[in-house]
Simulated scan of single mutants.
Amino acid sequence: MNTKRAAVGRPTCTETPITFQRRRLDLRGIRGAVGKGRDFTRQALRDWGWERRETAEDALLVVSELVTNAGLHAYGCHELVLTAGEGLRIDVVDGDTAPPRPRAVCRPGVPGGRGLYIVQRLADRWGSRAHGTGKVVWAEFGASRLTATAEGHRH
């Protein structure tokens, strides 16, 4: 982790880019997978010095949407994988080989059907690929969105 210790013992971010790190969370059969996935992501973002970025909130929402979609439409979320390097990659592994299909039309006032639209709007890139007996739905956030100093926040 590329951090220095503050006087109170909390890590503070530095200008040095994060080296490649990957974290995995097994969510197969776990109750409250969305909340656990968000907590896991929040901690990783904190450890990587990205928690105070506006993009961190976008990443948490994308995790919520992808894990929710896996639970509702793809036989459950099996695993959440976060990869940090030049940016952030979020992978959600599920149990269905069918690629995700965004709804063509969302009806006003009717809940649901906006998850992939939200992912598409917030992430820099997203997609899916086959993986074993299921698939991985992924989203990426570029480094510039994670390392730019947030307004009012100093390193």
Rank of each mutant, 00 (worst) to 15 (best):
G142C: 02
T55C: 11
K36S: 02
G87L: 03
L80C: 07
R101G: 01
V137T: 15
T133M: 06
H78T: 14
K36C: 00
L45V: 09
E151Y: 11
T83P: 04
R121Y: 02
G37P: 05
Y75W: 08
T147E: 13
A104W: 01
P17Y: 07
V81M: 09
A130F: 06
D94N: 15
R145V: 06
A143T: 05
I90W: 04
G85A: 11
G76C: 07
R129M: 13
G32F: 12
T133R: 13
V92T: 12
G87W: 02
E51G: 07
A74S: 15
E51D: 14
L82I: 04
C77K: 01
S128K: 05
L25D: 02
H155N: 07
E57Y: 05
P11E: 10
Y75M: 09
L61Y: 04
T149C: 07
T149G: 02
D124A: 04
V63E: 00
S128F: 06
P111V: 15
S128W: 14
D91Y: 10
G85C: 04
G142E: 14
G134Q: 00
R28N: 14
G35L: 08
G49S: 14
R53S: 12
T68D: 11
L45D: 05
D96A: 13
R38F: 03
D58P: 00
R28S: 15
A98F: 03
G37S: 11
V136G: 02
F20M: 11
G9C: 02
R28F: 10
R28K: 15
R38I: 14
R46P: 00
D94Y: 01
Q43I: 11
L25E: 07
G95E: 04
T83L: 10
W48N: 13
L66M: 15
R129N: 09
D91G: 10
M1A: 14
G76Y: 04
E15K: 09
I90Q: 03
V8S: 08
I18G: 00
L116P: 10
L27E: 06
R154P: 00
R52L: 15
T68V: 00
G109M: 15
V119E: 07
T14N: 06
